[in-house]
């Protein structure tokens, strides 16, 4: 065949060819905006591998994000994507899921977006037990605005708005989500990517509100002010701090100080999922109208 020519058969991708996560990416928009060594890409990739495992369809999946570094992920994802407003991703997602229960709805948010400005929406989304999977990228800071303190900066942490050390305690976001009524709660790190992928996959298949906290590193803004410095050192730090739920069970609070408890932390399938119970209510009304 002469140069420049190609047959139709050649243009069509082979069915047998295994898909990579590029299938779900707008690769033409690369390189992405995240800094070198930032863990947000790692967590996004873990989500996309979970999506591949489940074979999520692009036109039946809606990914909603708020504002911030983590929320910029949706700009690269080839699903129906909504880059909404700061803190409100879950409110947008609630409207989308209630209007179209058949969609798989994923929310990508950060610790500032999800736990500070969006904290109210987070607890109410947990309470409603709507079938939405929320992945909260926790990098302990506001990266996009330049390293200000977030609710997850932690006591003694440094930030541009905590130049003498932050003196407020953090949330335990997973315990918050569980107490608020989330029926699937898990935590992973950007070091334990295989575990994170599995947790996200199971969260998506769980019929109810799933909350997955992904602890990750921000070497540029958080790492610059808080030891250890550098992406590699921060990642190794995550590795050292992470401890499985099983191992943590026998440990005292003192021993668990500063550790990141990972794994599936809570799962309850006895609570009715909201779109399902709403559909049952509509059915009840229809029947009473017919009578």
């Amino acid at each position: 065949m002469a140069e420049g020519e190609s047959s139709v058969a050649e243009q069509e991708p082979s069915v047998a060819e295994p898909r990579t996560i590029d299938h779900y990416l707008h690769t033409d928009r690369f390189p992405h905006i995240w800094c070198p060594g930032c863990g947000l890409g790692t967590v996004t990739a873990a989500f996309l591998r979970a999506a591949l495992e489940l074979g999520l369809e692009k036109d039946r999946t809606v990914v909603v994000a708020g504002i911030g570094c983590s929320s910029r992920a949706v700009g690269y994802l080839d699903f129906g994507t909504v880059h909404s407003i700061h803190g409100r991703a879950l409110a947008f997602a609630t409207g989308i899921k209630m209007a179209h229960p058949e969609f798989t709805v994923i929310v990508l948010t950060g610790d500032g977006d999800g736990a500070a400005i969006g904290g109210n929406h987070l607890i109410h989304a947990c309470r409603r037990n709507l079938d939405i999977t929320t992945i909260l990228f926790n990098n302990n800071t506001y990266g996009m605005t330049g390293g200000q303190a977030s609710p997850q900066t932690g006591m003694g942490g440094y930030a541009t708005t905590a130049p003498f050390g932050f003196d407020e305690p953090s949330f335990d976001l997973c315990r918050l989500a569980e107490a608020a009524g989330a029926t699937y709660v898990a935590r992973g790190t950007s070091y334990g990517v295989r575990q994170l992928q599995k947790l996200i996959r199971d969260g998506i298949t769980h019929p109810g509100f799933s909350f997955i906290e992904a602890v990750t590193q921000c070497p540029t803004e958080y790492g610059k002010r808080n030891p250890p410095k550098g992406p590699v050192q921060m990642l190794e730090n995550l590795k050292e701090k992470a401890i499985s739920r099983k191992k943590a069970e026998g440990m005292t609070p003192e021993e668990l100080e500063g550790r990141i408890v990972t794994g599936l932390l809570h799962r309850d399938e006895s609570v009715p999922e909201l779109t399902a119970s709403y559909a049952r209510m509509l059915e009840r009304i229809r029947k009473s109208a017919d009578e």
């Binding site: 590029d22 690369f30 790692t42």
Partner: peptide, 10 residues
């Protein structure tokens, strides 16, 4: 491949 935050490893 899994750790790469830049989707650069295949």
């Amino acid at each position: 491949e899994f750790i790469c935050p830049d989707f650069a490893v295949t």
